[in-house]
Design a protein around this nucleic acid. Structure first.
Length: 216
DNA sequence: TGCCAGGCCCTCTTTAGGGCCTT
């Protein structure tokens, strides 16, 4: 039943019956609970298997970012000095999300920052969150590791840009997501029993992915 | 100067610990 539901939902993605927003944050650190803030949001909207919209904004976190983050992301304090406040950008991004479901690589990280920044401006989103990292760990067990960059290279996904910039990471995650949906569909086609990703996930991951697909 | 978190998941497990992944 779950497998059939999943297969139907994959079809919904391929047919463009629904759309999904794939997003990525660059931040001042790892934890909003420790005062870290978002400094860049990048996102793409997938419809009918193609990217139909893009969103990218730098945002001023209200304090200087560390040399490590400057080096890691390529985003400098000078670049952020002219950026709009986080609250302004996040309000625009909440509008961009609309009612869509969301996808991110290691979604628990991006969800924490999205929830924290939207809570600051009393905004929210109705969609469910799916994690390409959790799916890849089940689907691509032969991959050297499950970092986004490794998976993109391992799947021979073409791209020209810099990892650790929000829009490029969001685009690469989107193409990885489409590749995974195609591979799930192919495994279902080759097997008498449809490949049932949902039942292969752990209880906690199942809860997340299951709620995501149930909205399709 | 060095460190800071949280969720998932495997295993030498479940009354726990540690690696992976994100910035």
């Amino acid at each position: 039943m779950a497998g059939l539901r999943l297969f139907r939902q994959e079809y919904a993605v391929q047919s463009g019956a629904e759309s999904v927003v794939v997003l990525d944050f660059e931040t001042t650190g790892l934890s909003p609970d420790n005062g870290d803030r978002a400094i860049e949001i990048g996102a793409v909207r997938l419809q009918n298997g193609i990217i139909t919209e893009r969103f990218q904004q730098l945002m001023d976190p209200g304090r200087r970012i560390s040399p490590f983050i400057e080096d890691y992301t390529g985003i400098t304090n000078a670049m952020l000095a002219d950026a709009a406040p986080v609250s302004t950008v996040m309000a625009d991004f909440a509008d961009f999300i609309g009612d869509d479901n969301l996808v991110a690589h290691n979604a628990s990280f991006d969800k924490r920052f999205l929830d924290a920044e939207l809570a600051r401006i009393s905004r929210s989103y109705p969609g469910a969150f799916a994690c390409s990292l959790l799916v890849s760990r089940r689907l691509y067990q032969d991959s050297p590791d499950h970092k986004l960059g490794t998976l993109v290279r391992w799947k021979n996904i073409a791209g020209e840009g810099n990892f650790h910039r929000a829009l490029y990471d969001a685009e690469m995650t989107a193409y990885l997501w489409l590749a995974m949906l195609e591979d799930i569909r192919e495994q279902s086609r080759l097997s008498d029993v449809p490949f049932d990703l949902v039942t292969q996930l752990s209880k906690t991951a199942k809860k997340s992915v299951g709620s995501f697909f149930s909205r399709w």
